[in-house]
Every structure is written in structure tokens, then in C-alpha cells.
Design a protein around this nucleic acid. Structure first.
Lengths: 226, 226
DNA sequence: ACCTCATGTAAACGACCGTTGACTTATCGG
DNA sequence: CCGATAAGTCAACGGTCGTTTACATGAGGT
């Protein structure tokens, strides 16, 4: 057996090391509660987003993560606790990725989110927003996330007394597209890439939130800053 | 309230039982397989649309319908069979209600569907489109319904090579709004009536499917990229 | 009336679910 | 090196699920 030494000199309670490479050739996995926690979170978020809360079993999640089922109860107290943790981390990522762009960048940011949520492995934050667990706390977290996202969208739209309603329609469209892609596979929507999605989304956002001055033209919006 | 009458999916032994259709104080209910079937279908469609397939139990449906659980297996063979039957009837209603309007009428038709699906008791056809059961046949029915709806929408939009994609985006928006309303209750979207919904939907449909002449009066440049 | 069968009822079955407790094993401070 | 403790494993538990089976009963044809 090969044992690596000199790693993790300080025992961190939990360092969300999402950025760390997958390290597929780790072989005999060392005992690492933080890593196990993260593996469970990633697997759970994907399952919950794709199949919904009720259709997902804790054994599914544990198998995907490659850990024992009982560890879900240990680290997250319950399936509901795991779902709440998923919502929180998804909310953070969502806020981080959409908090820096202006109205002109929104369409492409949404398109990128949608496209990556299908192709990528994690993502699916948007789909999570529509997945209900029946738990009161989880539903409250979910509603807070939705309100926050809608509020930020509405803040970018200048005029109109119903700009919050319109922002929620934009949000609903984004979520609807994501769910339609992940759970039905209808074409050509499901295979559309960022470029193909950006065009209709630009029209959609422009028509709902644009005040006419922001101009729906962009084209050279440039690359997303990551 | 819902008027369930004139349903004859199976050869009725006697059609004269409609003399007193749904009198609530009818006391001992007469044995009527057709009526029982319809009660189950209505209850199931509502439950499936609101809570999703996996979160709905056959005992829930049977209790809502006021009939015995075993009758689900008798009349629909299984929970999956009941779900498929729900999809079929929902598809018929959806087609009937949107098959007579032109592009100009689409926004209000969608708004009406959405608003009634929240206030009314049945409806929810749109939400059903996003509920997956994991069953192959059901998913196929669902996909066919989606394709048909998207195709009819796209046929109303004249130009553009991506008009099918744009039609699917409109469909996704409508479904997303419905689910956001029924499963999160976010405001002001959830309480918006037909009138309030029609306005943003007109902009949305106009921007995605309109060719510029359909009266996109949003003030913003209604010109579409060519 | 009586037989027959469709309709509805009640109870149970096997399977799977989320969760728990006792047990094993690796890791580390002393 | 050696207990102490965290990290992980295993098997089982009560409960609920969808479904089936056996039974009761209303209703129409002859």
C-alpha cells in the first residue's frame, strides 16, 4: 500500500475543497471527514437536481459518493439536513456567479449556468430551486434564495411597477429551461450550447427587464470572468 | 369547482345515472366505475402536478378521491399507469385550449392556463409536463406532448432557423412560472392574475416568437436581430 | 327470485425507505 | 508503543410504499 505523507498538516474541521482536483488515483482513501462531507454534498446536489428530492434515496447518494450510507446521518443528521446543506451551497455559488454582471451580461450568465448544469457534473443550482422536500426549513431556504435572486434581477431593471414580477418571470424561464433540459431531453433545447441559448435569452431578458436604453445588442460581450 | 360529466371512457352500463350528477349529499354513493375512474384521475392529476410523482402516494390519491386504494390497481393497473393516464388527459385538454388561438392570443392563453392552474382545482397540465416518473412509457408520452406543443408554438412563429428552440424556451418559461407558483409561492408571481401575467408574457412571446409586427409595444426596440 | 358478475372493501405481503446502534479500524497525542 | 477518539462499516429496526389476494355486496338479466 502506498501512503502519502506530509499532507494536511493541520486537521481542518471542514475545508470545502471543491476546487481540488478530483484525485481519482488516490487509491486507498485516507480518512478525511471534510472530504467525505464534500463528496456527499456533490453527489446529493446532482441527484436532488436531476431526480428531485423524493425520488432520490440516501443509498443512491452514498453510492455515488462512494461512502457508507450511515455517514449521511452522521454528518448531516438526516436526508433533509443534507438537502438544506445542498441548498445553502448552491445559493452561495449562484450568488457568486451572478453578482458581478450587469443587465447586459445577464443573458450570457444565465446561458452559461444552464449549459454547464447539463454538461458539467455539479451545477444544477437552478434546478434545485424548484425541488421541494416538503420540509419547512428547506422550503424557507429555497424561498429566500429565490427572493434574493429575483430581487437582484429586478434591481437591474430600471422602470416599471411590476419589475419584480418580471424578474421572477425571467427566473422562472431560466429554471424551466434547466428542468426541461435535464429531465426531458427535448431537442433542440437540450443540446443547445451557450451561444445558441444566449440569443433567445437576450431577447427574453431585454423584453422583460430592458427599459429600452440598455440595448439588447451585445455580441461582443466578451468572456465571462470565470 | 369542476364539472366532471359526460365521461364515457368505457362502455357504461347505464348513462342515466347523470340524473343527479355530483350531489354532495347523495349519501350512499352508487356504484359507478366510470365516476370512480374520473375521481381518481382528477385527484391524481392534482397531486402529481403539485407534489411530483415520487412524493405522491397512491393512498394520498385514493383518499382525495374518496375511494379505496385497491381500485387504482384495478382501473389503471399500477401507479405508473395512472400517471400515464393523467398525462394523456392533460395533453388532450392542453391541445384543446391552445389549438384555436393565433400568435396574438398565445400570451393570454398561457396566462389563463397558469392563473387557473393555481386558483382552480384541476389544471396543472403544464406542471405535469415537468414531472417525471422514471417510467419509460410515461416519459415518452410526456416528451411527445412537449414536442407537439413546441411544434405548434413554432408554427406560429414565422421566421428564423431557431424558431423551434425559441418555442421551447417559451414553453419552458410557461412551465417554470407554473411550478414556481405552485411549489414555492413566491410573490408577486404567485398571486398574479391573468391580467398581470398577460403583460410580461406578451413581451416574452413577442420577443421570442414575434416577427416585429405582432405588436411588441414594450417601448423598447421591438426590432429583432436578423 | 336467483344466479352472476362487476364493484367496492379489508387486510396482508414483500420490498424498500431513512435511521440507528454496536462494532471495527485508522489516526494521533502522550 | 498505547490508549483515546474520530472515521467508517455493518446489520438490523420500524415504517411506509405499491400491489395482491380473498372476501363482501349491490345490481341487472332471465
Amino acid at each position: 500500500m502506498v501512503t502519502l505523507q506530509g499532507v494536511t498538516p493541520v486537521p481542518l474541521p471542514f475545508a470545502s475543497s471543491t476546487g481540488s482536483p478530483a484525485s481519482p488515483a488516490s487509491g486507498p482513501r485516507r480518512r478525511d471527514a471534510a472530504k467525505t462531507r464534500q463528496l456527499l454534498l456533490d453527489a446529493a446536489r446532482r441527484r436532488f437536481a436531476e431526480d428531485g428530492y423524493a425520488a432520490t434515496t440516501v443509498r443512491d447518494i452514498a453510492d455515488d459518493a462512494g461512502v457508507n450510507v450511515a455517514l449521511i446521518s452522521r454528518y448531516f443528521a438526516s436526508k433533509e439536513g443534507l438537502f438544506e446543506a445542498c441548498l445553502k451551497t448552491a445559493g452561495e455559488e449562484l450568488r457568486r456567479s451572478t453578482g458581478e454582471v450587469g443587465l447586459d451580461g445577464i443573458p450570457e450568465a444565465i446561458a452559461r449556468h444552464i449549459a454547464e448544469s447539463s454538461a458539467g457534473s455539479v451545477a444544477g443550482q437552478l434546478a434545485l430551486l424548484l425541488r421541494s422536500s416538503g420540509d419547512e426549513r428547506a422550503d424557507q431556504i429555497r424561498l429566500d434564495m429565490l427572493r434574493s435572486s429575483a430581487g437582484r434581477l429586478a434591481a437591474l431593471a430600471g422602470d416599471g411597477p411590476d419589475r419584480l414580477l418580471r424578474a421572477e418571470v425571467v427566473l422562472a424561464a431560466a429554471i424551466g429551461i434547466t428542468l426541461l433540459r435535464t429531465s426531458t431531453g427535448i431537442e433542440p433545447l437540450s443540446s443547445a450550447g451557450v451561444a445558441e441559448l444566449t440569443s433567445p435569452l437576450r431577447d427574453l431578458v431585454g423584453a422583460l427587464l430592458g427599459d429600452g436604453s440598455s440595448g439588447a445588442q451585445a455580441g461582443a460581450g466578451g468572456h465571462h470572468p470565470e
